[in-house]
Amino acid sequence: MSNHPITLTVNKSPYSLSVAAHHTLLDVLRDDLGLTGTNEGCRMGDCGACTVHLNQLRVPSCLVLAVNADGADVQTIEGLAGETTGEHHPLQEAFINRGALQCGFCTPGMIMSAAAILDEIPERPLSEAAIREALAGNLCRCTGYAKIIEAILEVANG
């Protein structure tokens, strides 16, 4: 299996890597860069646990071949908190305070999806129905989504 050189910017840090042709962006983030906050739930793009921002758009990183991400700007859950202050992103704060997580395995993907949704849908107040539809690609087995939706609504609408 051949390896290919790529460059990536991940959470504002540049990387030059040699990646196997069949490895995904998820593999590179987790195994090569040690960014294990992005979780692997299905490897088929069904569950959303591996959601990251690729050039400012949310993607399941298990569906992106690492070679296809060459040159891309990637943001993961580890890069979402305040860069200089280390303070939590408002979504992280709302998820914590509203109990929007249990086992937490879907949480980084949920939050990355939610952060993108806040940009994707400009209307305010953001409606609950719009969030539910936009979040349908992120599965959670613990919470029934109720508190996740509450947390996102709080951040969107204050």
């Binding site: 692997e40 998820f95 997580l101 949480t107």
Partner: peptide, 19 residues
Amino acid sequence: VPKRDAAAKTTGTIIYGHD
């Protein structure tokens, strides 16, 4: 009261078996 591990889970720093 939030779960004690809530910050670790929302920031992706918690270590699961798969990690």
